[in-house]
């Protein structure tokens, strides 16, 4: 069996500033060794440990999609030691990636269902992965309606803006983009994510699932809205974060009750979250 602590060596292939305030960058990595990309086979919703030798490792959601080949992509907010080192990297630098880790959005169960995606701020990474996956020609027919509510402070703080605009133009996905306050040239919604969700999102029913990712404050105000719209707790899917080290359930730090966020999660239904101590 493979050593779960040992990262695959990768080369930084591309770095792009992702938001106007430059606090987020999107990194594309290419595996150095033949065969490693195959071994890294992942599903939308999983994460990986980005590993900088001599600095440390951080858990980051995989922003590329399983249907995109030849690279893996992550979007990282500059927060502390490792993320700052990452922001200072140059293309061509060598580092490591460990994973894929954790569970994923329940794709088998979601087949044949309508999907509502609600995202806020920079927690849109694994949601992007999910949308690209569902929109892939080989997969689109497996899902019913797809609705996306995505909000950020300003237009320049929305991640993956080019793609968002492309999706706006399609008729097989309903985009509901929103920003906090009116801005010049902005033709979409204005307002916080929860009220826009209330206004635009489809009603909840047996065949409709909501996937919600965002800052704690957004989650806090979005959950009551979803409840009002008729989404039951086992139809609301979330992705939790806790401080992590190993990422595969051994170091003991990310526990919420008997569940470990890294291995039993990060994806949980609201129903499951409600049955664990609130220690995230």
């Amino acid at each position: 069996m493979q050593n779960p602590y040992l990262p695959y060596p990768v080369r930084v292939d591309d770095i792009e500033v992702a938001t106007e305030d430059k606090s987020l960058k999107t990194f594309k990595f290419v595996f150095l060794n033949d065969g490693d990309e195959k071994k890294f086979a992942y599903k939308a919703g999983q994460f990986a440990e980005l590993s900088i030798p001599g600095v440390g490792e951080i858990p980051i959601g995989i922003a590329s999609s399983p249907v995109e080949k030849g690279f893996v992509m992550f979007t990282v907010f500059r927060a502390g030691v490792v993320t700052t080192h990452l922001h200072n990297m140059k293309t061509g630098n060598i580092m490591g990636i460990r994973g894929p880790l954790g569970n994923w959005y329940p794709w088998d169960m979601l087949e044949g269902k309508n999907i509502l995606i609600v995202g806020g701020g920079f927690a849109f990474t694994t949601l992007r992965s999910s949308i690209v996956y569902m929109l892939d020609p080989a997969n689109r027919s497996k899902f019913g309606n797809i609705d996306v509510v995505y909000g950020a402070r300003t237009p320049g703080m929305l991640l993956y803006k080019d793609e968002l605009i492309e999706w706006e133009k399609r008729d097989d996905i309903n985009m509901h983009l929103t920003i906090d306050a009116p801005a010049e040239g902005w033709n979409y919604n204005v307002g916080f994510t929860p009220p826009i969700t209330e206004e635009k999102a489809p009603k909840g029913d047996e065949n409709t699932y909501a996937i919600v990712c965002g800052p704690p404050i957004m989650i806090k105000f979005t959950l009551p809205v979803l409840e009002k719209l008729g989404y039951s707790n086992d139809h609301i899917i979330m992705s939790l974060e806790n401080r992590m080290k190993c990422g595969f359930g051994m170091c003991g730090r990310c526990g919420i009750g008997k569940e470990l966020v890294c291995k039993d999660g990060p994806v949980f239904t609201l129903d499951q979250v409600n049955q664990t101590p609130k220690e995230y």
Partner: peptide, 19 residues
């Protein structure tokens, strides 16, 4: 009790990851 931490340590140009 088994909980552990993972840390990197560098000496000159070589380093190791420890738990």
């Amino acid at each position: 009790c088994w909980c552990f931490d993972i840390q990197d340590e560098v000496h000159g140009k070589s380093g190791k990851r420890m738990r």
